[in-house]
């Protein structure tokens, strides 16, 4: 078997080099490379990608950007100062530097968005793979569990969980992960159910592949498209829900800054202190748009029908 493969690859390699010598350039088909080529032609997707990379960099190096003593330091004499050369984005009503708070808020938003989707994807894809691969009774049982979680009103349930656990970033991630996995499960399962009838999966089974081997090597890689798209759209949704929870005062624990909380605390004073709501709202908007443009771009790029 191994020898056959080597022979085959030398054979094709030889053929390719022969063709290349004749001046025929060969373009190897690789769906990820093709998708990448399609994506870099879409300027909105590239804007989204640059935005997302920028946000992640800001989140990772947030400590380096801290000014005027960091996000929690109160300069009580300088409260409610409009943006100036010293306080770039101004200060809030207890004199905290808004620039530092928005930079640190980026780390919180990224933590909540990325980690929530990370856990939701692991739970969702695992359960979805098992349900879709084994089908029948297993599928039936697991999907009934999904039905129950799907019927949970997300925001209300998050309020419930946050009150039970107390407010903190890890608890927020737990509360949001608990309600966001069923979407991933449904997607993965649907993909698996349609793929498991394909000839190459039957061939893999016939040649004696283990179940997990077939799932990991054949089924999952071929189900990635909708999963990746769902992840990119899930991240802003999680950040959005965090912002709404913070509106009710049950999001992150002070003095840790959250964009949603900063907006909701200062909207009442909007006419007097416009910058207190404006900068966090803008940061929120940039994040939402970056992830959405990137998600749109990935979806279009991975859809071979959009090849023209």
């Amino acid at each position: 078997m191994a020898m056959q493969e080597t022979q085959l690859s030398t054979l094709t390699a030889g053929r390719e080099s022969a063709l290349e010598m004749e001046g025929v350039s060969l373009r190897r088909a690789n769906i990820w490379l093709d998708a990448w080529r399609r994506m870099i032609r879409n300027w909105l997707a590239i804007a989204g990608l640059i935005g997302v990379i920028g946000l992640i960099l800001v989140a990772v190096f947030a400590d380096q950007f801290m000014r005027n003593g960091g996000y929690a330091r109160q300069h009580l004499a300088d409260h409610g100062i409009a943006p100036n050369a010293h306080y770039w984005f101004g200060t809030d009503l207890i004199g905290r530097d808004l620039f530092s708070r928005i930079i640190y808020g980026c780390r919180i938003a990224m933590e909540v968005g990325l980690l929530t989707m990370f856990f939701a994807t692991i739970i969702g894809v695992t359960i979805g793979s098992i349900a879709g691969f084994y089908a029948g009774q297993v599928d039936n049982l697991l999907m009934r569990v999904v039905d129950v979680v799907y019927s949970i009103p997300t925001l209300f349930f998050a309020i419930l969980v946050m009150s039970a656990l107390g407010r903190s970033v890890p608890h927020l991630i737990i509360a949001l992960s608990l309600t966001s996995w069923p979407i991933m499960t449904r997607l993965t399962r649907a993909q698996m159910l349609s793929l498991r009838e394909k000839e190459y999966i039957k061939a893999a089974r016939l040649s004696g592949g283990h179940s997990w081997q077939i799932i990991m090597r054949h089924l999952l890689p071929n189900s990635m498209t909708p999963i990746i798209v769902a992840i990119t759209f899930g991240i802003p949704t999680a950040i959005f829900t965090e912002a709404t929870l913070s509106l009710f005062g049950i999001g992150v624990n002070p003095p840790i800054p959250s964009w949603g909380q900063m907006v909701s605390e200062s909207v009442k004073e909007f006419r007097s202190y416009w910058y207190m709501a404006f900068f966090p709202a803008t940061a929120l908007a940039i994040t939402m748009l970056s992830f959405t443009f990137l998600g749109d771009g990935i979806r279009d790029a991975l859809d071979p029908r959009a090849n023209n």
């Binding site: 802003p236 959005f240 912002a243 709404t244 509106l247 949603g260 907006v263 909701s264 909207v267 909007f270 006419r271 709501a277 709202a281 929120l284 908007a285 940039i286 939402m288 748009l289 959405t292």
Partner: peptide, 15 residues
């Protein structure tokens, strides 16, 4: 619709 959380939009509408 994507960029603005509904409560932010609400505040802007009131203003």
């Amino acid at each position: 619709g994507i960029a603005l959380p509904n409560f932010v939009l609400g505040v802007f509408l009131i203003l």
